[in-house]
């Protein structure tokens, strides 16, 4: 399953224009699976990206609008779209000109995948 999953993640970069990096991490920023383009800063893999999202997502869930689902941050040159796929975090880094709507759709598509990864993780913990 690992190989199929990695292939699927790698294909995402070619499927969506401007998508530079896809990572699925746990709440501490530990990377469970990633696909990163050559022309993006390796800093997208730093745990800080996930840990800060975790904190912010918790705060956003206190706005009185129920749970936070996703956050889109638009910068001049790039955009980061992150999803609360509890217990995991999915991060997409793309050019600012990338289709944000498509990236948000992708997040929903990836929820099924992250659910599989999360349950595989918890099974492993039980066995250990």
């Amino acid at each position: 399953m690992g190989e199929e999953l990695q292939t699927y993640f790698n294909k995402l970069l070619t499927r969506i224009d401007g998508l530079k990096a896809v990572t699925v991490t746990d709440g501490d920023g530990v990377i469970l699976i990633k696909s990163v383009s050559n022309d993006v800063s390796p800093r997208v893999l730093e745990p800080a990206l996930s840990t800060t999202f975790s904190v912010v997502s918790d705060q956003a869930s206190k706005l009185g609008l129920k749970k936070n689902k996703s956050i889109v941050s638009l910068f001049g040159l790039f955009q980061i779209v992150q999803f609360n796929h509890t217990p995991l975090i999915t991060t997409l880094v793309a050019d600012s000109g990338s289709n944000t709507g498509v990236l948000l759709d992708l997040g929903n598509e990836l929820k099924e995948v992250t659910d599989i990864i999360a349950s595989a993780l918890s099974e492993r913990q039980v066995i250990v």
Binding site: N99, T100, G101, V102, L104, D105
Partner: peptide, 12 residues
């Protein structure tokens, strides 16, 4: 409404 992304991607 969720198909907005997909639809605009087709157009571009």
């Amino acid at each position: 409404p969720n198909s907005a992304g997909f639809i605009s991607a087709i157009a571009t």
